[in-house]
Design a binder for these strands. Structure first.
Length: 486
RNA sequence: UCCUCUUUAGCUCAGCUGGUUAGAGCAUUUGACUGUUAAUCAAAGGGUCCUUGGUUCGAGCCCAAGAAGGGGAGCCA
């Protein structure tokens, strides 16, 4: 088999950029379509575009032609020429076709690889094959580019990645229900005298869980390395059944010593603008494809549910315009005086300061009132976590959320409470076990300084950049309540 | 967890007031054509009408329970 790697082997994205100079090259990929017994549309995952390989049927064995079926893997050797057709600039005049992996059309017919449109729900059922569709190829390339851009941004800014633990021994991170972790025999666990399970005999000799956030550990690292970020998987055992929640998702959590909340907002905004612009510049073809896909999808929807602007325009808008910064108190005033509040169109009517904002309120602010991303800050202390820094008014904390159109909350962050006594008191008030988080509190005794950070849900970012409407369609194998297939 | 909608061919769907042998487009197969671009033209094959139980002379259609999936809400990122 002449299939060892050599200099003439090329990825299709490179080939499509090459000059049609008749040089002999070999490409390998999967057949997307085979028209007229002559035109193979070949895709190798390197780009949304296919390479058209042209074969002269008389020059190839019938046994080979019979196996050039949709989804089959083939290696094609030939000469790159200008295309006679109008659909592409260059094409490969094939001299040799080798079938690398067969695909029986009768079997392919039963899968989403069959050459026709499929619903996103159907693609989800066959998640092991969906990356071979145009839409998922594009989404996953954009996801990978965004992941790279995130590391690039922080590394260039002098941040260090902190690998915070995935298994945690504390259950007080306060960000949601946790997945319990144990090696005890579930049918016959060791029992204490009072009937409870004796975790002293478990692997870690205490209860352990999958992490819901690396923030608390990241804070300790910011106190040594100055500016750090985490980027890893996070687990929440919430029974959330929405298009925006996963039980396993990836989160980015920068944490910076000496930053106050204003600097934190500056960082978050600059960071988001950078990665969105990076994707726009480096995944132009994929985002163009996704924009067209979205436009087609919008045609099926009623006018008021359609995207207000095309995908690329929306992404450029994010890069160019400043996010609107509004305090919680101002936001409440805006909402109180808003039409839907006065006409009782909101399900939850805003009556007084202190109420938690529902997603209908966030959407109103972002999509109707300001029509741009909004950063809300200085929330009531009562509705926010124990570690957020108390303002001098004793009523509000230095918290901020970034709200995006169509996505809702994409970032949640705060300036952390750096004062030992204040933090200790807040932990007591909010019933946080000091024994669980002694180390977090103790950090405040040794050179404690102002510091801030935020968490950004990676999948929500990918949703925004790709225009996909369901978080399950921007991660390879989504984990949701009742679903851990694949 | 709550509200709501859906489930009919491989896929997307239609199926009238409960009435003979359940249809269409795409996909697949076969043939024709051979510079196509979601190729085109012709023909063929393809059904546990989600499951269970009930009402009825008769159920894809009505009733009940269950299952799976979508959308929305809550919680959050």
């Amino acid at each position: 088999m002449p299939l060892v790697y050599n200099i003439t082997m090329k990825r299709i994205n490179q080939v499509l950029e090459s000059e049609p100079n008749h040089a002999e090259i070999t490409v390998r990929g999967w057949v997307r379509s085979f028209r007229n017994d002559r035109f193979i549309a070949l895709n190798d995952g390197s780009t949304i575009h296919n390479l058209q390989c042209v074969i002269e049927p008389a020059d190839h064995d019938q046994s080979i032609l019979d196996e050039i079926n949709v989804a089959a893997a083939v290696a094609v050797t030939g000469h790159l020429t200008e295309s006679e057709g109008s659909g592409q600039r260059v094409e490969l005049q094939a001299t040799k076709v080798v079938i690398l992996g067969k695909a029986d059309p009768e079997d392919v017919k039963l899968t989403i690889l069959s050459p026709k449109r499929h619903s996103l729900e159907k693609l989800r059922e066959q998640a092991h094959l969906r990356v071979r569709t145009n839409t998922f190829g594009a989404v996953m390339r954009v996801r990978a580019a965004l992941s790279f851009a995130i590391h690039k941004y922080f590394q260039e800014k002098g941040f260090y990645q902190a690998h915070t633990p995935i298994i945690t021994g504390s259950d007080a991170e306060g960000a949601g229900e946790m997945f319990r972790l144990s090696t005890l025999d579930p049918k016959n666990p060791p029992i204490n005298e009072d009937g409870s399970i004796n975790y002293k005999e478990d692997f870690f000799e205490k209860e352990s869980n999958l992490t819901v956030s690396g923030q608390l550990e990241a804070e300790t690292y910011a106190m040594g390395l100055g500016q750090v970020y985490t980027f890893g998987p996070t687990f929440r055992a919430e029974n959330s059944n929405t298009s925006r929640h996963l039980a396993e998702f990836w989160m980015i959590e920068p944490e910076v010593a000496f930053n106050d909340l204003d600097a934190n907002m500056d960082l978050a905004e600059d960071f988001i603008k950078y990665v969105v612009s990076y994707a726009l510049d480096n995944c132009a073809d994929d985002i163009e494809f996704l924009e067209n896909r979205l436009e087609q999808e919008d045609k099926q929807k009623p006018q008021n549910e359609r995207s207000p602007m095309p995908l690329r325009e929306k992404l450029k808008f994010i890069g160019k315009n400043n996010f609107k910064r509004v305090s919680y108190t101002e936001a409440i005033d805006i909402l109180k005086n808003s039409k839907p509040n006065k006409n009782k169109k909101f399900k939850y009517i805003i009556e007084e300061w202190g109420a938690d904002l529902q997603s209908e309120h966030e959407r109103y602010l972002v999509e109707k009132h300001f029509e741009c991303p909004v950063i809300l800050f200085d929330y009531p202390a009562k509705i926010k976590a124990f570690y957020m820094r108390l303002n001098d008014d004793k009523k509000t904390v230095r918290a901020m959320d970034i709200l995006f159109p169509g996505i809702g909350e994409i970032v949640g962050g705060s300036q952390r409470e750096e004062r030992y006594d204040v933090l200790k008191q807040k932990m007591a008030d909010m019933h946080i076990e000091e024994a669980e988080l002694w180390w977090y509190l103790e950090m405040r005794k040794f050179g404690s300084v102002v510091h801030s950070g935020f968490g950004l849900g990676f999948e929500r970012l990918v949703m925004f950049v790709t225009g996909m409407g369901n978080v399950r369609d921007v991660i390879p194998y989504p984990r949701t309540p009742g679903n851990a297939e694949f």
